[in-house]
Simulated assay, not measured.
Amino acid sequence: MIKVGIVIGSTRPGRTGETVARWIHDLAVKRDDAEYELVDLKDFALPHLDEELPAALGQYANRHTKAWSDRIAEFDAYVFVTPEYNHSFPGALKDAIDFLFAEWHDKAAAVVGYGVNGGVRAAEHLRQVLGMVKVADVQLSVALPLEEVAAPGEKYDQQASAMLDQLVSWGAALRTIRV
């Protein structure tokens, strides 16, 4: 069974991301195809990238980077929950990705965006960045308009379920090339 991290991509006070991530988590844990865990960027208190050496070397000097590395390395796939800020995803999420390199390789990801237009531009930018760290993003995603984030309806439950189907199959397939 693969392990999927549901990453809350915002650290902003009063954020909606935690609500959205818990909705995805609640749907996911009803399934029997993977182990699902929430991963909150706030718990790691990562500063702006402060490692002297490039992440590709894997020689982390800081305790917070090592803790982040250990947490991310344990997953086979990820659901990134991201708001859209100024037509992109939050800087805190970009920094969190940039802190690491090999930990992301050959894993699968899905994106749940939220915002004025469902966070679609943030999702597109995030997909580009994930590709550079060798994360394969699945085709299906969920785009929640702001008025839907508090209580996504059945339509969004179905979209999320189909997205998770793709994510689990890709995560399992990619696991075989890492093992």
Rank of each mutant, 00 (worst) to 15 (best):
K3P: 10
K3E: 15
V4F: 11
G5V: 11
G5K: 05
I6S: 08
V7D: 02
S10H: 08
T11N: 13
R12M: 12
P13L: 10
P13T: 14
G14F: 14
R15V: 12
T16P: 02
T16K: 11
E18M: 15
T19D: 08
V20E: 05
R22A: 02
W23H: 01
D26K: 10
D26I: 00
D26F: 04
L27H: 09
A28Y: 00
K30Q: 15
R31N: 05
R31P: 00
D33Y: 01
A34I: 15
Y36V: 15
Y36M: 13
Y36Q: 14
Y36A: 12
Y36D: 13
E37T: 15
L38M: 14
L38T: 13
V39C: 00
A45I: 05
L49A: 01
L49I: 15
L49F: 07
D50R: 04
E51S: 10
L53H: 07
A55V: 09
A56M: 10
L57A: 10
L57K: 11
G58M: 04
Y60N: 07
A61G: 04
A61L: 11
R63K: 08
K66R: 14
W68Q: 07
S69C: 08
S69W: 01
R71P: 04
I72D: 03
A73L: 08
A73R: 13
A73P: 04
A73V: 04
E74N: 04
F75H: 14
F75C: 12
Y78T: 05
V79N: 03
F89C: 03
F89P: 02
P90F: 06
G91N: 06
G91T: 09
G91C: 00
G91P: 02
K94N: 07
K94E: 04
D95T: 11
A96S: 15
I97H: 09
D98F: 06
L100V: 03
L100N: 04
A102I: 02
A102L: 04
E103Q: 15
H105W: 10
H105A: 06
D106A: 08
D106Y: 09
K107S: 05
V111D: 01
V111M: 08
Y114A: 10
G115T: 09
G118K: 08
G119E: 09
V120A: 14
R121T: 14
R121K: 15
H125Q: 14
Q128P: 04
V129K: 05
V129N: 08
L130Y: 12
G131E: 11
M132W: 09
K134Y: 13
K134G: 05
V135E: 08
V135S: 05
A136S: 14
A136I: 10
D137W: 06
D137H: 07
V142S: 01
V142C: 03
V142L: 12
L144D: 03
L146W: 04
L146E: 12
L146R: 11
L146T: 10
E148D: 15
V149I: 08
V149D: 00
A150Q: 11
A151Q: 13
P152E: 00
K155N: 05
D157P: 00
D157I: 00
A160G: 03
A160H: 00
M163S: 00
L164A: 02
L164Q: 02
D165Y: 02
Q166I: 03
Q166P: 03
V168G: 01
V168H: 01
G171V: 09
G171R: 01
G171L: 07
A173E: 07
T176I: 01
T176Y: 01
I177H: 00
R178D: 06
R178V: 06
